[in-house]
Design a protein around this nucleic acid. Structure first.
Lengths: 190, 190, 190, 190
DNA sequence: GATGAATGAGCCTTCATTCAT
DNA sequence: TATGAATGAAGGCTCATTCAT
């Protein structure tokens, strides 16, 4: 029975991500999710307490996986510049390989659905990354400011540029990653 | 014959912005907007064709005003660094003075509600800003890359940092604007 | 001002007839009628008290005109068989020339909109026809039964056959009028 | 898991027939049907896709039953005159015993709700009757014309006379069936 | 006379959720 | 566990009608 469960949870997650990007948060409904998964609407309540609980948990799962992917292959003592480069590379790869998930996150994180507790819980998963930037500051490599600010200059421009790339798909190959990373690094380096 | 009342349109806009930040895109409804404005739900349809039309037009109006505010007081021949600094300052001021509007925009622009035509139309309002960055590139002051990428490093980190500042309100005074602008400039300067 | 009025009333009548055949009684609305006529919905209330009043009056007008058309060119002392033949011919011609009006009448007369008073009032317009059939009975030409029954065998089969002809349009030329009239006459003749 | 309740479908049918005769096609609504059946409006959508689907299916069911009743007790080889007499008798009896159903049919069949496909499907149920008239033509008993035309002279005058009888209820006993049938037979016999 | 603005009431339909199986 | 049936509440929208101009 366990295996079946996890398949269904994964199917629900996939359906939500797909539907939200297709029709938007405002137009999604339990019955549409049910139809997209092939389950009965009643079955969704076997796995989640209610709609809100469902969305929150799905968001948390997807976001955690994104964080994990972004900090992949970075060891704690790694050279800071190298670590930051990997971070940026990982982020870009994640967005390319999991575009639907990424766009879902972008919608979810800006909605009031995302509570402070959720954000706090997710912050814990980012500790490794924060520590890397703190180390960079201590080593005198990075500007003397908060890690949050430093991270901002690595994540958000790349995310936003990716969104624009998606629309005018031609741009993506034109601007190569090295340029973008150089800008990130110039922004944060001392 | 009564005439259309521009005050009502403004009231509708205000109500939508407030409600979306309070309860989110997913939970907003025509009747809630009606109640918030003191109008009958039917009256909303005097001013907008339907819910989607309403949201789109309100978004366009608000976003246009934001663009206008951000490019305020920047003359075409201005020194590029000074122009970029003003841009960042204007953006920060807009977010502080119009937080609800800004957060509404953040939600709306990530939803499928925002069509390509809308984005294209808004792009026209950004022409002045784009030209400023193009000039910076030509003058050899900025990195030799697309204006979109350069702009990304000025807008999005600041926007994101502002969102974080809002939550832990204490942070806002700690990090002063000069540091942030320096990071933007370092990112884009040659 | 008089001329304008009558034009508008005629336009309203035409619009109602057209719309009811297109979308049905259930889906018609004052605003659709307004749009179809190019008038404002409010203007309709200048000519009619309300929707029900409007429908009733339009129905009465159209039905009266139909009765008039059907009894055209029949003089009181005319040979009875000739009079019945003209009646049938007139009916068929009316249905062909005013198909929309006829179909509108068919829908309206079966709905509860048509009150007993209306039917009674219309009956008065049929007096000439009734008298013709009564004369036929007195002259021993027609069966000794009520005029209503005799008339039924002249009107309704023709109406119904016309409706079927409309669908499979090919049938109309195949069955010639003479056959139909012969059936009517055989049904009612002594 | 609960199972669908055929009683409910029957209750819905009954409610629609009653309401349409009371208030007319134009004024019927899903919530009125719900109230009349004691169901929630939402439950109606368990049994029918939407209002139109509901009306169409109810109409088809009722009309099929009417056709069945009208061709009852007529065997394929029966004497033609006897068969036609039974047909007329059955029709009259159906209208008397199921007046609401009959009046509902009269309203529905004249509305645009009745599509060509529906009419075609119903025509199949009339095959036996058509064959009887065809046989009458072949045997030289009936006029050499289409069955549709022959049938018209049996059904529609009777239907129409029944409607008039209903209003002035006194008339019904005055005109006996034998007279009416004689008129039908005279109309169609060779 | 003519009409756009305005609205309470009602429309059809879908919602999130529960229940019986 | 899984689900079709069932529903009160709410959804977006249109209705017939009135009013001010």
């Amino acid at each position: 029975m366990r295996i079946k469960d996890e398949n269904k949870k994964a199917a629900i997650t996939k359906a939500i991500i797909g539907l939200i990007n297709e029709i938007g948060f405002a137009n999604i409904s339990m019955s549409k999710i049910a139809k997209a998964t092939g389950l009965s609407a009643a079955t969704l309540y076997v796995y989640y307490e209610n709609k809100e609980d469902m969305f929150r948990k799905v968001y948390m799962d997807v976001k955690k996986q994104m964080i994990e992917e972004c900090s992949k292959d970075i060891c704690p003592q790694e050279n800071v510049q190298e670590a930051v480069r990997k971070l940026c590379e990982n982020l870009l790869r994640y967005m390319q390989d999991n575009t639907d998930e990424f766009l879902f996150i972008e919608q979810a994180c800006n909605s009031p659905m995302a509570t402070d507790e959720m954000i706090e819980e997710l912050a814990q998963y980012n500790q490794d990354t924060i520590r890397t930037f703190q180390r960079g500051v201590q080593e005198g490599l990075l500007k003397q400011t908060s890690p949050a600010l430093l991270i901002s200059f690595c994540y958000y421009p790349i995310q936003q540029i990716f969104k624009e790339w998606r629309k005018e798909k031609s741009m993506l190959p034109e601007v190569d990653f090295e340029v973008v990373f150089q800008m990130c690094w110039d922004a944060i380096k001392r």
